[in-house]
Simulated scan of single mutants.
Amino acid sequence: MMAQLAKAAQKQLADLLFPVRAARGEEEDGILNVPLHERRLQTETYDFTILTIANLLREEKIVVPEFQRKYVWNRNQASRLIESIIIQCPIPVIYLDQEDDGTLKVIDGNQRLMSIRLFFENGFRLKGLRAFPDLNGFLFRELDPRFRTHIENRTIRCITILKETHPQIKFDVFERLNTGAVQLNPQELRHGLYHGSLMEKLDELGEYEPWQELSGIKDDKRMRGAELILRFLALRFKLDEYEKPLATFLNKFAQGNRDVGKDDEFENAFKKSVDGMKALLGSKAFRLLDADGKPDNNFNSAVFDAQMVGFALSGRSPKNISKELGAEFLPRYVALQTDREYVRAVSASTSDRPLVHTRIELFRSLVQEIVPV
């Protein structure tokens, strides 16, 4: 008994000190779908001088994407980095992602890079130095020219993931390097890796008031709503190409549509479906209902797929849905939830291609039966 208690205590301590990351789900194992010969990371390694890095940052040839992880280092941390450069202490490797236009986007190392840029722009005075306390209080421009030259000529190793690397491999590497205090979720990673007008559009659509009302997502700090909107758009416009895992499907769609321009097709499709669901089900949308039509408290992503994409593909307009029609629709939808195929499609192995198609098709058919053209 004592041995068992000791072993349990040891396990508890180990869990505290060395937490085990949750196992990757089926939808996250997209790397297995990449052909073996394309799973190799294609990289180039550069030893950039600090001056070169500062210039590349200023010219925006190296860019820090604007997503969840902001600049959070305090002046002591930034100053210690500069001191490490002065004493030639090894600096951790910077990881960069090469865009199609040759721009290098930071995957890991933005705190270090932003600290270097700020210092070269005289953005902070050195503080808390230990090896060279006499330099405390100085801006970069105020340092002796010999110190400035010494700093400028130091190097940091930068590993660039070349644009020829398979997109899913890039995403996997980005995830592996995600070692911040707050772990980024898949949509936050996409927002950084595929940042462009599509990601901006997702943020914009997330502000649509009827969507916030139905989804209950009003403060989308962790981008849950943005991922759901991306999920709708991907299934609405590329349903025939859908293959599991879902995460890889969303990655491909995000990459292929990252610069959507001013085309309002995505916006119109999303708002039309949201308005349709508001007219048909109101607060009962996106949730399982019991036999009396009472909604479950939990948002159901599979039900969301069925309703949003099904309505979009029905060819019906929310303008043709009266209150009376909504009242007629509700019991028919409650009855649909007793259909064995529908229940299976929204409750188990929901990312399987046949089940995705099944739930969308069943809801689409129901809408077409009741809502006039």
Score class of each variant (00 low, 15 high):
K218W: 00
V274H: 03
L280D: 03
G225I: 07
T358V: 14
G216K: 05
Q111D: 00
F270G: 06
I53A: 10
F120A: 07
A254R: 03
R148W: 00
T179Y: 03
G123C: 02
D108S: 05
S84M: 08
E241T: 05
N110E: 08
G225R: 07
T338N: 14
I94L: 09
V34E: 01
D108Y: 08
K272I: 06
E175S: 14
F286Q: 05
A8I: 07
S349N: 14
A23P: 01
K61M: 07
A327F: 11
E267V: 13
V20T: 14
D305E: 15
F253S: 01
N76P: 00
A54Q: 11
L177Y: 08
L325H: 12
V346A: 03
F140K: 11
V64A: 11
Y333G: 09
E243D: 09
E44H: 07
P354A: 03
E200C: 10
R117I: 01
F140S: 11
D263N: 15
L126G: 07
R130M: 03
G225F: 01
I161Q: 04
A312D: 10
T338W: 07
L32D: 08
Q88H: 11
A131Q: 12
E204D: 13
L57T: 10
P210I: 08
F120R: 06
K7A: 15
M114C: 07
C89N: 08
K284E: 05
D339T: 12
E121L: 12
G216D: 00
A22E: 15
L41K: 02
T358I: 14
S349T: 12
F138R: 14
T165N: 06
F253T: 04
F266C: 04
L250T: 04
Q183D: 05
L113C: 02
R236S: 02
T248A: 12
T165M: 09
F67K: 11
T49N: 11
E324T: 15
V106Q: 08
G276N: 10
D290S: 07
V106W: 04
P133K: 12
K323F: 08
M1V: 15
V72T: 08
G276A: 08
G310I: 11
A131D: 04
L289Y: 06
A291K: 15
F304R: 10
G276T: 11
E38P: 01
L228E: 02
T43D: 00
L366S: 09
